[in-house]
Design a binder for these strands. Structure first.
Length: 831
RNA sequence: GCGUGGGUGGCGGAAUUGGUAGACGCACUAGCUUGAGGUGCUAGCGCUCGCAAGGGCGUGCUGGUUCGAGUCCAGUCUCGCGCACCA
């Protein structure tokens, strides 16, 4: 019904037509031999969860606008898309619907691919892959083996969430509240032998690299610094009284307070707890430990009350020889530092609270320099600042900083301590006792032990159609999978049945895109190196730490292994976090029932209107509130553009847009100026990498308003008007790609506007004939003077004084001072 | 607590180096237009006093610097995000 009414844009037919044409022409294919400078723009690999909503569209269409803009500005744009296809939801779906995870995943991919294409995005689909494809995950296995060879993959015992009823390991989100999400039974912590990547070997480099990532948001860099958590301090050992072979190692950043130690605390899981606890305390210690072990990680760390019990054992202070009690407490973490701390109640808030609660002595050894508190006054709270040492033997009178060095040296001289750098960062636990992931390519042989699967035997194929019950690991029950022979001795052996964390998949996929069909290597370094790094990475800030840290780690390792030539080893030059789309004051999500789907939106309003609205709504990094009323404005805009352009289709002819048209009137000059203001805005937002195209859409509105007026004038169209009409599709191309190509072809151009050139903004076109100078009296606006640019100050003053409102405000008072900002403002200061 | 980013009309937001606060859009109001009202056109639209000209106030709050502050400085309130018994 739309297509017969003039003045109405048939978005359905036209948008579908152009998408088919682009696909037919393979318009967005990037080639290695393209002589133009490369620009690699990438949105984070999506998980194929099912349906997309307009929040996803905001992300993908932003990347698409950036890609189109850069392509029109002369770059060889690489803009790929693929699927993060392994992971838990597929197994859950398999259980709930009795469907194979692969079938579920593949149908989701098909739907999401359709929807992403439906947005009019220009991806190079020749590079597409899904991480669950053996052609991809075999290289996960290959890379794992290279890390193993370099000593960066290893196995050790580590605690997991374990459901004793389902006999399975649970992810943290499946064990919330300490109960199993499926059966409701209490979750236990259990030690299991697990695979780790030694990311801690790269802690210093990952930290130092952050300083070079000036194209990243500061908050993200701060979060990574925080996560890596580097701290400088001292480790030293307390001897245990009566246990000649035992000592308690502690780490502290405040060794200057060591003379204030009145007790020592171990984590409940500390290995010494079993050996040193005295018989009369054993029962209490065991009970306390048990009460903690039945708690989930979440509960343990959110416990508000500090609690602990004495072990009955005593440590000997290394500098004073004092006998001090050894406790265990819930506030000491086995996984951080040495799993034990020295208790200094006078100078640590936690220790202060703990000491008060259990009546342990509180001693002051550091006097803060900026306090008027008497040196021996009783404390209301711990003094945590630096100061001057007292009650510290030979170290009295030293500043905290000096004392830290001197005491560390003293401990070192006795062979019981040293200065160390400690990190909060832990090794990356990649083992998952699950089915839907990359099998870890290791075989266990009774004679040869842990053996790598040879490269020639990769991939270790994930067997299809295993029953998924939620109880235990399907692979561990499949004898056909785990029964194998040892690659070394040929004897019977057992395969590793753990699969890899899906973060492995997303830690190098951006390199694979550059050589996506390579069948002999994960990628060819000579081929991919010139295309790295990713110039612009776009994705949510929820990945600020894990994914973005793991990907940096992998890229550094691959570069170190000589597989990739990338100075600095940083994969992402610039990073942009897009904001989420909200509706009714809440984040858009299926569970809240406030999603606005892609299919319905495109059907009702059209793709280009949706894209323009998502751009206009807010700066892309901000979260934005979706409204159904708001998008109507963009539908109006699209239709106005169409109505304005339509009369010029019959008189189509090619215009050279990089030359300014001759203008005879101010109105014509203003129209051309509006074109170039919009061009300047688009180029500026792209060049600065701010991507605030919401302001560019405002310039486009102004241009269309001006065009609307100009086309209403009777008579032959001026050169300026024709120029503006022809420039409009170029301006729209990055944002409303279908409308742009339709206008462009109707106006007589044969090649797609997306292969054409952006028009550089011309300063001559931006110049103005008339300026308005604001006249202020004592900083308040009292008048305006309209004149030519470059008018001398004296003349401006004369014009200003001709304004009665200006003279009224001056009155009889003399002008004490004149401030003149050329062509902008004249401020007269009167007494 | 530590880190980090914000607070501007009824709403989303705009505003180079300090220099006309509120661009552009939504909503709203009035009018015009059409064969019937959803997607056309024109005008108005921060609050307030005023018939008007014009005035006063106004960017979370309190001070400060300046001829001039949304923008800079100090303090403070508040919201979002991240991490958190990190030794």
């Amino acid at each position: 019904m739309n297509e017969d009414r003039p003045g109405t844009y048939d978005y359905r037919g036209i948008e579908a037509k152009w998408q088919a044409a682009w696909q037919e022409a393979d318009l967005y294919r990037a080639r290695d031999d393209d002589p133009r400078p490369k620009y690699y723009v990438l949105e984070m690999l999506p998980y194929p969860s099912g349906d997309l909503h307009v929040g996803h569209a905001k992300n993908y269409t932003l990347g698409d606008s950036v890609a189109r803009m850069m392509r029109m500005q002369g770059h060889n744009v690489i803009h790929p898309m693929g699927w993060d296809a392994f992971g838990l939801p597929a197994e859950n779906a398999a259980m709930q619907r009795n469907i194979d995870p692969r079938a579920w995943t593949e149908s989701n991919i098909a739907n999401m691919r359709r929807q992403i294409r439906l947005m009019g995005t220009g991806y190079d689909w020749n590079r597409e892959f899904a991480t669950c494809d053996p052609a991809y995950y075999r290289w996960n296995q290959w890379i794992f083996l290279r890390l193993y060879e370099r000593g960066l993959a290893y196995k050790r015992e580590a605690p997991v969430n374990w459901c004793p009823f389902d006999q399975t390991v649970l992810a943290n989100e499946q064990a919330e509240g300490g109960v199993c999400w499926r059966c409701g039974n209490a979750v236990e912590r259990r030690n299991l032998s697990q695979w780790f990547f030694k990311i801690t070997d790269y802690a210093e480099r990952l930290l130092a690299g952050l300083d070079t990532l000036t194209g990243w948001p500061e908050q993200t860099r701060a979060m990574q610094r925080n996560w890596i958590g580097r701290s400088e301090g001292t480790t030293f050992a307390f001897a245990v009284d009566g246990h000649a072979d035992a000592s308690v190692g502690v780490f502290t950043t405040r060794v200057d307070t060591v003379f204030g130690v009145s007790y020592v605390v171990l984590a409940a899981e500390h290995p010494l707890v079993q050996t040193i606890t005295t018989p009369e305390h054993r029962e209490a210690v065991t009970a306390f430990t048990a009460s903690l072990s039945s708690k989930s990680d979440l509960e343990r760390t959110s416990l508000m009350e500090k609690a602990g019990v004495p072990t009955g054992a005593f440590a000997l202070h290394p500098l004073t020889g004092a006998r001090i009690p050894i406790w265990i407490a819930n506030y000491v973490l086995a996984e951080y530092g040495t799993g034990a701390v020295m208790g200094v109640p006078g100078h640590d808030e936690r220790d202060f609270v703990f000491a008060k609660q259990y009546g342990l002595p509180i001693v002051r050894v550091v006097v803060p320099t900026d306090s008027d508190l008497a040196p021996d006054a009783p404390l209301d709270e711990a003094l945590t600042g630096d100061g001057t040492l007292v009650n510290s033997g030979a170290f009295d009178g030293m500043s905290s900083a000096d004392a830290r060095r001197a005491i560390t040296d003293a401990l070192h001289a006795r062979g019981i301590g040293e200065g160390v750098v400690n990190f909060r960062l832990r090794d990356w636990l990649l083992s998952r006792q699950r089915y839907w992931g990359t099998p870890i390519p290791i075989v266990y042989c009774p004679t040869d032990g842990e053996v790598m699967v040879p490269d020639a035997q990769l991939p270790v194929i994930l067997p299809p159609n295993l029953p998924i019950t939620g109880q235990g690991s399907p692979l561990a029950r499949d004898a056909a999978f785990y029964e194998t022979t040892c690659p070394k001795c040929g004897g019977p052996a057992r395969r590793e049945t753990d699969t890899m964390d899906t973060f492995v998949d997303s830690s190098w996929y951006f390199i694979r895109y550059l050589d996506a069909r390579n069948e002999t290597l994960p990628f060819d370094g000579a081929r991919v190196s010139p295309m790295m790094p990713v110039d612009q990475y776009i994705g949510g800030s929820e990945h600020a730490v894990l994914h973005l840290l793991y990907a940096r780690f992998f890229t550094m390792v691959l570069a170190d292994a000589g597989m990739l030539d990338l100075p600095g080893g940083e994969p992402f030059e610039r990073l942009f976090h897009q904001g989420m789309v909200w509706r009714n004051g809440e984040k858009m999500s299926k569970s809240r029932g406030n999603v606005v789907g892609i299919d319905e939106t495109v059907e009702t309003y059209g793709i280009d209107a949706m894209r323009l609205f998502l751009l206009k709504l807010a700066p892309p990094e901000d979260s934005a509130e979706w409204t159904d009323e708001g998008i109507v404005g963009r539908v109006r805009f699209v239709n106005r553009v169409w109505r304005i352009s339509e009369p010029y289709f019959p008189i189509a002819k090619i215009i050279a847009l990089d030359t300014l048209p001759p203008c005879t009137t101010d109105a014509e000059r203003d129209l051309v100026r509006a074109v170039h203001l919009a061009l300047a805005s688009g180029a500026e937002e792209t060049a600065t990498r701010r991507f605030h195209y919401n302001t560019t859409t405002a310039r486009l509105d102004e241009l269309v308003n001006a065009l609307s007026k100009a086309t209403a004038e009777p008579g032959e169209p001026s050169a300026a008007l024709l120029y503006a009409v022809h420039a409009l599709p170029v301006l729209l191309a990055p944002f409303a790609p279908h409308l742009a190509d339709e206008l462009w072809s109707r106006l007589g151009y044969t090649e797609s506007v997306h292969l054409g050139r952006w028009i550089p903004a011309d300063p001559a076109a931006l110049a103005v004939a008339q300026i308005t100078v604001v006249v202020q009296i004592n900083g308040k606006v009292r008048g305006r003077v309209t004149t030519q640019p470059g008018t001398p100050q004296a003349e401006i003053l004369a014009l200003a004084l001709a304004d009665p409102n200006v003279t009224n405000h001056i009155g009889e008072k003399p002008i004490r001072k004149e401030i003149y900002i050329a062509d902008k403002l004249l401020n007269l200061v009167v007494a």
